[in-house]
Amino acid sequence: LRQRHVACLARSERGLGFSIAGGKGSTPYRAGDAGIFVSRIAEGGAAHRAGTLQVGDRVLSINGVDVTEARHDHAVSLLTAASPTIALLLEREAGGP
Rank of each mutant, 00 (worst) to 15 (best):
Leu1Lys: 14
Arg2Phe: 12
Arg4Val: 09
Arg4Ala: 05
His5Glu: 11
His5Gly: 06
Cys8Thr: 15
Cys8Gly: 03
Leu9Val: 15
Ala10Arg: 12
Ala10Ile: 11
Ser12Phe: 06
Ser12Tyr: 08
Ser12Trp: 06
Arg14Asn: 11
Gly15Arg: 05
Phe18Ser: 01
Phe18Lys: 01
Gly23Arg: 00
Gly23Ala: 00
Lys24His: 09
Lys24Phe: 05
Ser26Cys: 13
Ser26Trp: 04
Pro28Ala: 09
Pro28Ile: 02
Tyr29Gln: 05
Arg30Val: 15
Ala31His: 11
Ala31Glu: 15
Gly32Val: 04
Asp33Lys: 11
Gly35Pro: 02
Ile36Trp: 05
Phe37Gln: 01
Val38Asp: 04
Val38Gln: 02
Val38Ile: 13
Ser39Thr: 08
Arg40Cys: 11
Arg40His: 15
Arg40Leu: 10
Arg40Lys: 14
Ile41Ala: 00
Glu43Ser: 10
Glu43Phe: 09
Ala47Pro: 07
Arg49His: 13
Arg49Met: 15
Gly51Phe: 01
Gly51His: 05
Gly51Glu: 07
Leu53Arg: 02
Leu53Trp: 00
Gln54Tyr: 06
Gln54His: 09
Val55Glu: 09
Gly56Arg: 01
Asp57Trp: 02
Asp57Val: 00
Arg58Glu: 02
Val59Ser: 00
Val59Phe: 01
Leu60Ile: 13
Ile62Met: 05
Ile62Thr: 00
Ile62Asn: 04
Ile62His: 04
Asn63Arg: 01
Gly64Val: 04
Val65Met: 08
Val65Gln: 13
Asp66Thr: 05
Asp66Tyr: 04
Val67Leu: 06
Val67Phe: 03
Thr68Arg: 12
Thr68Gln: 10
Glu69Ile: 07
Glu69Trp: 06
Ala70Gly: 09
His72Asp: 03
His72Trp: 07
Asp73Glu: 14
Asp73His: 07
His74Thr: 14
His74Gln: 14
Val76Tyr: 10
Val76Pro: 01
Leu78Val: 06
Leu79Phe: 05
Leu79Ala: 02
Thr80Lys: 15
Thr80Gly: 14
Ala81Lys: 13
Ala82Val: 09
Ser83Tyr: 10
Ile86His: 06
Ile86Ala: 08
Ile86Cys: 15
Ile86Val: 15
Ala87Thr: 15
Leu89Tyr: 09
Leu89Ser: 10
Leu90Gln: 02
Leu90Met: 05
Glu91His: 04
Arg92His: 03
Glu93Leu: 06
Pro97Ala: 12
Pro97Phe: 10
